[in-house]
């Protein structure tokens, strides 16, 4: 394995297949996501977009094919091992920890950094951590304090959405805030690759704009972070992404810039089935 290739953190999806019963969610998916790229994945419901993220993050395993990160095969690893390699994600259904406070929920994301492993050296084994926590050893406490500072910084990225509510339990949050919380939990890990599964779903237009601005700002401050975003709101895709993959029935039908991809007649056909409805396409989807 060569670590000195110019694009060492590339994520390679190599002829990946995945079926659920008779439904084909991934059919010979084969493409490469370069380091630092902002890739949007769009397509009609059931196209296999979320399955793609589930496979990259280890929640679902491909039946055939490989997924490699920087040359290393990751499709047989557990979700926690993949996360430790620097891939963080959000879920389509907003999986927050309902009874935990917002602050604690975000701090959960810092745990893997605290104990080390994956892309950072191992710092605490189970027994070491037990002893350190029990006797509040200085090194462990310092790491925990650093994690808290990092969590504060991330919460404040979302303006007054999360920080003033940091001691509220996650179940009390609005739908849009749960999405923000999930993104914050991923960002606190300072990932190399960020997977966003419909981050703007359930947000009203002004909330969508606000989120778009946060992601754009993130893009400016962390240009080396790869972002893969599944999103139905095409306006968000146009504003943020550099590359756009359109999926239908488990395959990539178009791989282009967002502008190019979203104008493609094959895309319109995949979404609406008929070419005659093409005129309505842009409007319907851009309303979000």
């Amino acid at each position: 394995m060569s670590m000195s290739t110019p694009n060492s953190a590339a994520l390679v999806i190599d002829k990946v297949n995945r079926r659920f019963g008779g439904v084909v969610a991934a059919n010979a998916l084969d493409f490469t996501i370069r380091q630092g790229e902002f890739l949007a994945v769009v397509g009609p419901n059931g196209a296999g977009k979320s399955t793609l993220l589930q496979m990259i993050s280890g929640v679902i395993r491909p039946q055939e094919g490989e997924i490699r990160l920087g040359g290393r095969r990751i499709d047989r690893l557990t979700p926690e091992a993949i996360n430790a390699l620097g891939i963080s994600r959000t879920f389509q259904t907003s999986r927050v920890f309902p009874m935990l406070t917002i602050r604690d929920s975000i701090l959960v994301g810092t745990q893997v950094g605290l104990i080390g492993g994956g892309r950072s050296p191992r710092r605490y084994g189970p027994v070491g951590e037990l002893v350190s926590a029990l006797f509040r050893l200085p090194g462990y406490r310092a790491s925990a304090a650093a994690a808290e500072a990092r969590a504060e910084e991330v919460m404040k990225m979302f303006g007054d959405r999360l920080w003033p509510r940091r001691n509220d339990q996650a179940f009390s949050l609005s739908y849009a805030n749960r999405r923000r919380l999930e993104i914050a939990r991923a960002l606190v890990q300072d990932p190399d690759i960020l997977l966003l599964d419909e981050p703007a779903a359930g947000m009203n237009p002004s909330e969508t704009d606000e989120l778009t601005e946060i992601i754009a700002e993130l893009r400016r401050s962390r240009p080396s972070m790869t972002i893969v975003m599944v999103e139905h709101k095409l306006q968000v895709v146009r504003q943020l992404a550099e590359r756009c993959i359109v999926m239908s029935q488990g395959t990539v039908i178009v791989d282009d810039t967002p502008a190019g991809a979203l104008e493609d007649p094959r895309v319109i056909e995949a979404y609406l089935g008929t070419k005659r409805s093409a005129a309505a396409f842009g409007k319907v989807n851009d309303d979000g």
Binding site: G58, L100, V108, Q111, L134
Partner: peptide, 25 residues
């Protein structure tokens, strides 16, 4: 009251989300 306890509660609340956040359950 340590990160360990917080991690226990996170596992209780949503095991999959905890794993996807890097927690070795």
């Amino acid at each position: 009251n340590s990160p360990i306890g917080r991690t226990w509660r996170a596992i209780r609340e949503d095991r999959l989300a905890a794993r996807a956040s890097g927690v070795p359950v």
